[in-house]
């Protein structure tokens, strides 16, 4: 147990330089603005005096290392600057919109795991069968699909042609009343409030964007599950387990699947990175009021503080997620140690 705790400690310590690196990159990005950042942050209507004022306020007249320390302190205290377009602190804006994005991303990931992992397992246990071919087609087609295009096609089919999907405008149709904010996840909030009508309404809005994202993430997951299961099934311990007369289910799930899970979870981490990027596109297609569409709106009006805040927040979220994934490794497979890295 002590060994495992120190493993976890080492892993957490390892993420510190990465976080530092992320903050440095994001600092460089805010200072790499073409021309004078003070001019941008002062806004379009600024005169000489107010630009100088902004420069002092932002600390841009100080030497670069000192600027970085100030920036790092601001980030550490959660001060990501003011958004020009909304007039709110960027952190507050992001926090308000994060649940919408997370609800979409997590639903999509769960959906995609629920389809891709069984598909991969089935394909691996029945090589050459129809399931295997389906898996292969899905994998090849899936990586070629531009998410934003899939979204547009789904809208055309399910909204325009079949008329079963609600109009692709946000999280909830205007006929429903937003549930009281508890977690910010409409599905959870509506369920907590016992308002099942709103729950169904929110679910309807969620289905298409979630499916769009899920289609995009299914391919790498199915591919990795299939490959990992194939290599696990061809290993010596499976042969031994079969020779010992264990039932096929036991061999498949207790021995093969558990060992195949590790690479699948690694892939899941990678897929999450793609999803955070694809989220931006899907949110734009479905007018989903998450942090992705917030960043896109900010980009259009050159609201740099908001964009850089978004980039930094996404990176930190991703670092945290990778940490969680690595830590779950130790739960799934106690053999994993991080010292060897």
């Amino acid at each position: 147990m002590a060994g495992r705790l120190s493993t976890i400690g080492t892993r957490i310590a390892q993420s510190i330089p990465v976080i530092l690196g992320v903050v440095v990159v994001s600092f460089v990005l805010t200072r790499a603005l073409p021309g004078d950042p003070a001019v941008y942050f002062a806004g379009a209507a600024a005169d000489e005096a107010s630009i100088a004022e902004v420069r002092t306020a932002l600390g841009l007249d100080k030497p670069l290392p000192e600027q970085f320390l100030i920036y790092a302190r601001d980030v550490a205290t959660g001060n990501l600057g003011q958004s020009l377009s909304t007039g709110q602190p960027v952190l507050e804006d992001l926090a308000n919109r994060l649940p919408a994005s997370l609800e979409l991303t997590l639903t999509a990931l769960m959906l995609s795991c629920a389809v891709a992992i069984p598909l991969g397992v089935l394909a691996a246990t029945r090589p050459g069968s129809a399931v295997d071919h389906l898996c292969r087609v899905l994998v090849t087609a899936g990586v070629s699909l531009p998410t934003f295009f899939t979204g547009v096609v789904l809208i055309y089919i399910f909204y325009y042609l079949l008329g079963i999907a609600p109009s692709p405008l946000g999280r909830l149709d205007f006929i429903y009343i937003e549930p009281d904010r508890i977690t910010g996840f409409y599905l959870i909030d509506a369920a907590l409030a016992g308002d099942w009508e709103t729950w169904v309404g929110a679910l309807k809005q969620l289905v298409l964007p979630a499916v769009t994202l899920a289609l995009f993430t299914m391919a790498p997951l199915a591919r990795m599950t299939r490959a990992a299961m194939l290599s696990a099934l061809s290993s010596d311990y499976i042969r031994t387990a079969r020779a010992a007369g264990l039932t096929e289910d036991k061999v498949l799930f207790t021995y093969a699947f558990r060992n195949a899970l590790l690479p699948v979870i690694t892939t899941l981490g990678m897929v999450f990175s793609f999803t955070l990027g694809a989220n931006v596109l899907v949110e734009k297609v479905f007018a989903w009021p998450g942090i992705g569409s917030y960043a896109v709106e900010a980009l259009v009006v050159s609201d740099y503080a908001a964009v850089q805040g978004f980039v930094l927040a996404m990176a930190l979220l991703f670092v945290a997620l990778n940490l969680v994934i690595d830590l779950t490794y130790t739960l799934i497979d106690p053999r994993i140690g991080f010292e060897t890295k």
């Binding site: 440095v24 790499a32 931006v280 964009v307 990176a315």
Partner: peptide, 17 residues
């Protein structure tokens, strides 16, 4: 550090900057 960013998001940030 580069790989620690969601890559599409980093590309957005770079273009914005």
């Amino acid at each position: 550090t580069i790989m620690a960013f969601p890559l599409f998001v980093l590309a957005m940030g770079i273009v914005a900057a």
